[in-house]
């Protein structure tokens, strides 16, 4: 990945000094990684929108209060906030995302995604549905590791810090997750 012109830390520093545009830049830079990760953790687009918003409200409030102490680690810090919010939610509601088959996917809607045409919309929906169903089948710890590594772009070391394990455990979970997904792809002849 190319090094950005202005680092996250520089943007954070300028935002704290009152430059609102820097937050927008951070959002544009990381929105896909963070949103996709949240989505695959909660399995619901609307919930994901809520958690994404709630995460950044926490980010803003922390930055405004001068309590940001994560120099050089903006994205892992944001992902830790998002992950903790999701975990708190599931702890309170005592539910975890459940495995559903393809016929059970009814609340998953892409109305709010911008597509240029109907065909693109259909292909995107099919790909995301399949990807989501595959990831849903993984055990929770493997799913979390896969999402944080692949979609959030965190290192195995950063994932270990967030999930309270060690790097070797994160690597093992990721390996099992990828092998598990491969088996599912082969078993069901899925084309992504």
């Amino acid at each position: 990945m190319n090094k950005p012109l202005i680092s996250d830390e520089e943007l954070v520093a300028q935002y704290i000094q009152g430059n609102e545009a820097c937050l927008k830049t951070l959002l544009i830079r990381h929105k896909s990684q963070i949103f996709t990760s949240i989505f695959y953790l909660v399995n619901d687009r609307y919930l994901a929108e809520d958690f994404f918003q709630e995460t950044f409200i926490k980010v803003i409030n922390t930055l405004r209060a001068g309590k940001y102490k994560e120099s050089g680690k903006f994205l892992p810090w944001v992902m830790r906030i998002a992950r903790n919010l999701v975990m708190d939610h599931f702890r309170k509601t005592k539910t975890l995302p459940t495995v559903v088959d393809s016929d059970g996917v009814d609340v998953f809607t892409f109305i709010r995604i911008k597509e240029t045409n109907a065909e693109e919309k259909m292909v995107r929906k099919e790909t995301q549905d399949k990807g989501r169903q595959l990831i849903e089948h993984l055990p929770e710890d493997q799913r979390e590791t896969l999402v944080l590594r692949h979609y959030a772009g965190l290192s195995f070391k950063e994932i270990a810090a967030i999930t309270g394990t060690n790097t070797n455990t994160s690597l093992a979970r990721m390996r099992y997750a990828l092998k598990g997904m491969r088996k599912l792809i082969e078993k069901h002849n899925i084309i992504l």
Binding site: E20, L27, E49, Q128, R132, H150, K179, R182, L192
Partner: peptide
């Protein structure tokens, strides 16, 4: 492993613009 990783790359998503607007308003 690389093949699965490549396939995962096709499933990225983005939040709605209205969510970004709400965050900026906050």
């Amino acid at each position: 492993l690389k093949e699965v990783v490549a396939k995962l790359g096709n499933a990225k998503m983005e939040p709605d613009n209205s969510t970004i607007d709400l965050i900026m308003a906050h």
